[in-house]
Amino acid sequence: MTVHPGARDAPPAAPVETGTPSRPRSRFEQLTAMRFFASLLVMVSHAAMMPRTDNALSWFGRNVIDYGHGRVGFFFMLSGFVLCHAYEAKFARGALTYRAFLVRRVLRIWPLHMLVAVPLAAWFLWRIGTEGLPIVVANLLLLQSWIPMYDYFASLNAPSWSLSTELFLYTMFPLLVMLSRRRLQVLCAGLVIWSFVAPAVLALAGYGHVMDENGAVGFGYWFTAINPVMRLTEFTIGMVMCRLLRDGDDRHWLPRWADGAAIVSFVAAMVVFSSLRERIPDIFFNQAFYLPAVAFLVLALAEGRGRTSRWLAGQRTLRFLGETSFALYIVHSPILRRGFDVYYRLDAPMPLVPFAILLMGLCVAVGCIVHSFIEQPMQRAIRSWLDRPARPSPA
C-alpha cells in the first residue's frame, strides 16, 4: 500500500512577521527550516513503501518511518499556527473579508497542484478512459478527501488529498478565528477527545486497521487519516498555541531545552510505533498517537528559545529548503513512482537503497527548481494581481 500525505499551508507559506514586540525574534525561521525535515520524512516514508521486494529500505519503512500520514499532522498544526498569527488581527479589525481570504489561500495551493495534476489526469484518462472522469474532476477541484474510496482520495498525484483537506481548513479558519480564546480552547479539547474516541469506536465496529481482510484500504483509515473533519483537531491546536504564545507576553511555557527534547520525542514516537503496531488497532496511528509529540514539537520550536531553535533559524540553506517544501511535496510522488518503475524495468541495475537515495535527491532538486522558477514567480504575479488598486467607479 502506498498512502501519500503531506499538505499544508504553513509549508507553502513564507515565514510571517510576528509583530509581537515582547518576542525578540521577528520571524519563525526555525519553523520554516523544520518544514524541510518534515517533508523529508513524508517523502522517505513514501519511498520506503514503494519497492516491490522485501529489502533494507522496506524494513526501514515498516519498522521506523512508516505511517507518514500520522506525521503530516505537523503541517496541519503548523498551518493553524501560522494562519492565526498572520490573519487574526486583520479579521478582528475588518481589514480582510472571508471571500478575500479564501481567494488568496486557494490561489496559494491550487496553481501548483494543477501544474502536476493536469498532465497526470491526461495520462490517467488516456489509460482508463472516460470512466475515470469523476475521479479526475474530484481531484482537480480538490474534493477527493471527502470521498471514502481509495481510488478517489489517492488518485493522480496522491499526496494532494491533504490539499483537499487543507482547503476545508481554510474555509473553517475565518469562523474559528472569531471565537473567543475560551471557546476555541473548549472546541479544541472536544476535538482532541474525539480524535481518541473515534478510532476506538471504529475498532470496536471492526474498522480498526488500515487494511481490511481483503487487503484493501479500509473505511477506518479514511475516517481517521483523510477525513477533513478529523484533521480539524491539529489545525485548531495550532491556533490555540499561537494565541497562548501571543497572549502570554513574556511568559515561557517550556524550558530552553524543550526544543531538542521535542525533536527526540518526535523521533522516539516513530520508533515506539513499530513495537506497538501489532498490539493496538493501527488507525490510532493516523492521528491520535502522534498528537502529543507533534504539539510538543510545534510549541517548543515556536517559542524558539533553545539552542536547537536558534541553530535551525540560523541555517540559511535549511530555511530555503523549508520554503521549497510545498514544491517538494507536490513533485515527489510522481518522480518516485516513475523512478521505481524504471528501476524494475531495467532489472535493478544497482542496489535499491543507493538508487532510492539518488531518486530522493532528484526529488529535492526538482522541488528547488520548481519553487525558484515556477512557484515563486507565479505567486508574485498572483499577489501583484490581488493587490492591484481598485479602479475608481465612474461618476
Rank of each mutant, 00 (worst) to 15 (best):
P24V: 12
R25V: 09
R27D: 01
R27E: 01
F28D: 07
Q30Y: 02
Q30P: 06
L31F: 05
L31H: 00
T32N: 08
T32S: 12
A33M: 10
M34G: 08
M34H: 04
M34E: 01
R35E: 02
R35C: 07
F36R: 02
F37A: 14
A38N: 06
L40R: 06
L40Q: 05
L40D: 06
V42T: 13
V42W: 01
M43I: 13
M43A: 14
S45A: 15
H46D: 00
H46S: 01
A47H: 12
M49T: 04
M49P: 00
M50E: 03
M50G: 00
P51A: 02
P51H: 02
P51E: 00
R52V: 09
T53D: 14
N55Y: 10
A56K: 11
S58D: 04
S58A: 13
S58R: 15
S58L: 12
S58E: 05
S58G: 07
W59M: 10
W59I: 12
F60L: 15
F60M: 12
G61V: 06
R62N: 11
R62V: 04
N63F: 08
V64H: 02
D66F: 02
G70W: 05
G73M: 08
F74E: 01
F74R: 01
F75L: 13
F76G: 01
M77R: 01
M77P: 02
L78F: 11
L78S: 15
L78A: 15
S79K: 09
S79C: 11
G80R: 11
G80M: 06
F81T: 01
F81I: 10
F81C: 01
V82Q: 00
V82H: 00
L83K: 04
C84G: 13
H85C: 07
E88F: 04
A89T: 13
K90L: 08
K90D: 03
K90N: 03
A92W: 04
A92Y: 06
A92M: 06
R93Q: 14
L96W: 02
T97M: 06
F101L: 11
F101P: 04
L102H: 12
V103Q: 12
V103A: 10
R104C: 03
R104Y: 02
L107M: 13
R108E: 07
R108H: 14
R108K: 12
I109S: 12
I109W: 08
L112N: 05
L112W: 09
H113C: 13
M114Y: 08
L115W: 04
V116T: 11
V116P: 04
A117L: 12
P119R: 06
P119Y: 03
P119K: 06
A122C: 09
W123P: 00
F124W: 08
F124A: 09
R127P: 04
I128Q: 14
I128Y: 08
G129K: 13
T130A: 13
G132L: 07
L133H: 09
P134L: 14
P134T: 15
P134W: 14
I135A: 10
I135H: 08
V136M: 10
V136E: 03
V136N: 06
V137I: 15
V137A: 12
A138H: 09
A138T: 13
A138F: 10
A138S: 15
N139P: 01
L142Q: 10
L142R: 03
L143F: 14
